[in-house]
Amino acid sequence: MLKIDNLKVAYGGIQALKGISLEVEEGKIVALIGANGAGKSTTLRSIVGLVKPEGGTITYHGEDLSKVDTKDIVKKGITLVPEGRRVFGNLTVVENLKIGAFYRNDKKAIKEDLEWVYSLFPRLQERTWQQAGTLSGGEQQMLAVGRALMSRPKLLMMDEPSLGLAPLITKEIFKIIEEIYKQGVTILLIEQNANLSLKIADKAYVMETGKITLQGSGKELLTNDEVKKAYLGESVHG
């Protein structure tokens, strides 16, 4: 579905991505874990055209994404839930959700999708007419995900969905991610909570300073000594 090959990105002469390669298969959850500054967000921003690579290729169903205008990426079925949520605080919950369907014209389908999003996030339905800026952090994250789903993505990319959230809300968000996946949406997930993301990932990659250093199934990386020590807070004996 999505293939990144030897991707290189530099900011002001500093190499943020040093030739990374990864694949996202259709119908899978792929996790990208690593410390802050490893290049994870840069990877997602490159896919949607917010950052221009200086080398390598990004292809989606065989099409070179560098030739697709950034504003048309969502029409191809790729949607990004950015880090920090970025909801429109002065608009209501339902207005934010409808913005996610901005390029679609089928009112009946949009209404059905709105009902689907509300079924995933009952809390949003309760707050339909509330200004988004008055929601809690967890509710704003749910709204950001719901807004992305209103574009009917084939590939949903999520950048740190649990950032700043309490553990209980984080678990709730991850349950919803699994539910979205069961509905047939492919997911590329960046997440500081390596333990939770590896548990649900079909495939996972570890990034360090702009390079992919490890890859394997989520289960394989959960039991990898290097990953345990660096990202799961476990001491490794032996």
Rank of each mutant, 00 (worst) to 15 (best):
M1Y: 04
M1S: 12
D5F: 05
L7I: 07
K8S: 12
V9Q: 05
Y11N: 07
G12T: 09
I14E: 07
A16P: 00
L17A: 04
L17W: 02
K18P: 08
G19V: 08
L22S: 05
V24G: 01
E25P: 07
K28A: 11
K28Y: 08
I29S: 03
V30D: 06
V30T: 13
A31R: 05
A31N: 06
L32D: 05
N36L: 04
G37R: 12
K40M: 04
S41K: 05
T43M: 05
L44K: 02
S46F: 06
G49I: 02
K52S: 13
P53Q: 13
E54K: 11
T57I: 07
I58Y: 04
I58M: 13
Y60Q: 04
Y60W: 15
H61A: 14
H61G: 14
G62C: 12
D64P: 11
I73A: 09
K75L: 14
I78L: 05
T79S: 15
V81D: 00
P82W: 00
E83N: 08
E83A: 01
G84V: 07
R85A: 07
R86A: 04
R86T: 07
N90V: 08
T92A: 08
V94D: 03
G100K: 05
A101W: 01
Y103C: 10
Y103L: 15
R104W: 06
N105D: 15
N105W: 10
K108V: 13
K108R: 14
K108Y: 10
E112A: 15
D113V: 06
V117W: 02
L120T: 03
R123T: 09
R123Y: 06
E126N: 10
W129S: 15
A132W: 02
A132I: 01
G133P: 02
L135E: 00
E139F: 02
L143K: 01
A148Q: 00
L149E: 01
L149K: 01
L149M: 15
M150T: 05
S151P: 07
R152G: 03
P153Y: 03
L155F: 02
M157Y: 04
M157L: 14
M158A: 11
D159I: 06
E160C: 12
P161Q: 06
P161A: 08
P161M: 02
P161L: 04
S162P: 05
P167E: 05
K171G: 11
K171D: 15
K171S: 15
E172I: 08
E179A: 15
I180K: 02
K182I: 10
Q183G: 12
T186L: 08
I187H: 00
L189S: 01
L189Q: 01
E191G: 00
Q192A: 03
Q192M: 02
N193W: 03
A194I: 05
N195M: 11
N195Y: 10
L198G: 03
L198T: 01
A201M: 09
K203C: 09
K203R: 15
Y205I: 03
E208N: 12
E208V: 15
T209Q: 14
T209Y: 14
T213K: 06
L214A: 10
S217W: 13
E226V: 12
K229I: 07
L232N: 01
G233V: 08
E234P: 04
S235N: 14
S235L: 12
